Simulated assay, not measured.
Amino acid sequence: MSRVLEFEGIRNFRHFGEYAARDGATVRSGLFRSGHFHNATEADRQKLVDMRISVVADLRRPRERDNEPSNWGEGLRILQSDVSGHKEPPHLRFIREGDMSLDGVAAWMRATYRRLPNEKGNQEVFAAGLRELATHGADEGFVVHCAAGKDRTGLFCALTLALAGVERDAIYDDYLMTNDAVDYDALVPMVQKRLLDTYGRDIPSDAMRRFLGVEPDYLDEAFDEIGSAEAYVSGVLGLSDDEIAAIRANLIAR
C-alpha cells in the first residue's frame, strides 16, 4: 500500500508512521509530512479535517510564508518560527545567483544539510514539534512541512524515526521516497520556466532535478553533523530525558 496520499494542491504528502521499531514494536499512525499548503483547495482542507489533523509544524521562514501563505483552514495548532525575520531564504538566493551546474547543485545541497541542524529557526520548530509528539496520540494527526517537504521536513522525520528506534535503512527509504512521490517530469519544466521568467536563469534539466530531489549523501551530511539523534535532541534542542522518553513512548503504536 502506497504511503503517498493524493491531494489536489499539496505535493509530497505522505505518511511517515507505521515503520518497524525496536523490540518488535511499530511506530504509530497519524504522522504525516508534505510540501507547503499554499495551493491547498477546499477539497484538500476537507480531507485534512477527515484525517483529524490537529497540529501543523511549518518549518518555513517568515519570508517564505509571506510569499506563499498557507491555506490550512481552521482549527489547527500551528507551530512556526520567526527567527531570521524576513531575510531571503538561502535556497532562493542560491537559485538567483548560485552555481546551478550539476556539480554545483550537489555541493550546495551537501552544505545545506550541514547547515540545517544548526539553524535556530529549524531548531525551534523541531523542538516544538517533538514536544507535541510527546503528548498527541494517533487519534490526533500531526503533519510537518516546509516548502517542498524534502529537506527540513526530511531531517525532522529522520530524527523522529531515529528516536522511535527505526532502522537506518528504513529512515533513508522514507527520506528518499520524495523522488517517487513527486512528479518531476511535470515539475522540472514548470520550475525551469519560472526561473527563466523571474531571474533569466536557464537551468539544465539534470541540475534542476537534482536540486528538487533528494540523495542519500545529503542526509549523510546532516547525520555526520548531528551525531546521534538523542544527543542532538538533548544537547542542541534542549529536551529533557523525561521528554525524550515520553516522545519515544508516544511514537509507538498501542
Rank of each mutant, 00 (worst) to 15 (best):
D202Q: 09
G213R: 01
A170Y: 00
Q192E: 12
G24L: 08
N39G: 09
R114Y: 02
M208D: 06
F156H: 10
R114M: 09
G24P: 07
E243L: 07
I252L: 14
E88R: 15
R22P: 03
G75V: 05
D58G: 08
D220Q: 14
E42L: 12
L195I: 11
T26N: 10
P90Q: 15
H36N: 13
I252T: 07
L5I: 15
V236S: 06
Q80S: 11
D173Q: 06
D180Y: 01
A158Y: 02
Q123C: 01
A246D: 08
G9N: 09
R152V: 06
D82V: 08
L102M: 11
R168V: 09
R60W: 06
I244P: 07
A164G: 08
M208P: 02
D183L: 00
R152P: 02
E167F: 10
I10E: 05
F126Y: 15
L79N: 10
L92D: 07
L195P: 05
Q80R: 12
T198K: 11
L196D: 13
Q192T: 03
R11H: 11
T160K: 05
D183Y: 09
Y172T: 01
A148V: 06
N71V: 00
E167V: 08
T26D: 11
G129H: 09
P204Y: 01
M1L: 12
A222I: 06
D66I: 12
A253R: 14
V105Q: 06
L176V: 05
S2Y: 10
D66Y: 14
Q46W: 05
A21I: 04
Y172R: 00
G24D: 08
T153N: 04
A134P: 03
V166F: 04
G9Q: 12
R65C: 13
L237N: 04
A249E: 14
D66Q: 15
R3E: 14
A106F: 11
R61W: 00
R28F: 01
F142D: 00
R201A: 05
K87G: 13
S34C: 10
H91M: 14
H136T: 13
R14F: 13
I10D: 04
R254I: 12
R194F: 10
G137I: 12
S228K: 01
A138W: 10
M190F: 11
S240P: 02
R115C: 10
V27H: 00
G227V: 01
G165T: 11
L76Y: 02
V83R: 13
R63M: 15
A127M: 03
A134W: 03
V188N: 06
N67M: 15
V55Q: 00
D66P: 06
G238V: 02
V182S: 00
R209C: 07
A57R: 09
N67C: 07
V83E: 14
E18M: 10
E140S: 07
S228Q: 04
D151S: 05
R115K: 15
